[in-house]
Simulated assay, not measured.
Amino acid sequence: MAAPVRTLCCSVLRLSSRQFSTTCGVQGGEKWRKEHGISKSGTEYGPLTDLPDWSFADGRPAPLLKGQLRRKQEREVLARRIVMLDSEVDRGIEKWNEKQEAAERMEEHKKSLLLKPKGKLLIKKQTKNS
Rank of each mutant, 00 (worst) to 15 (best):
K110D: 02
I123C: 03
P61F: 01
H109D: 05
S21I: 02
C9N: 12
K128T: 07
K34L: 15
E108F: 02
N129Y: 08
P63M: 01
K128S: 10
T7P: 00
G42T: 12
D53V: 08
L64Y: 00
K118N: 04
Q27F: 12
H36F: 07
T22L: 11
E98P: 00
L114Q: 13
Q100H: 12
W96K: 13
T7R: 14
S21D: 10
F20L: 13
L69K: 12
L15W: 09
C9R: 12
G92D: 02
T43W: 07
I38N: 00
V12R: 10
N97G: 03
P47Y: 02
A2L: 13
I123Q: 05
D86Y: 05
G29M: 03
P52A: 07
T43C: 10
M84V: 11
L113H: 06
I82H: 12
L48I: 11
L122M: 14
L122F: 03
A102K: 09
Q19K: 15
G37T: 05
W54K: 06
T127P: 00
A62D: 09
G42R: 10
W96Y: 12
G119Q: 01
K31I: 13
L13D: 10
R14K: 15
E107F: 02
E44W: 07
L8A: 15
L121A: 15
L15T: 08
E76T: 02
P47W: 04
R60H: 11
S21E: 05
E76F: 03
G46V: 04
P47K: 11
L78M: 15
W32M: 08
N97Y: 08
P4D: 05
R18P: 00
Y45C: 11
E88T: 02
S55H: 15
C10R: 14
Y45E: 14
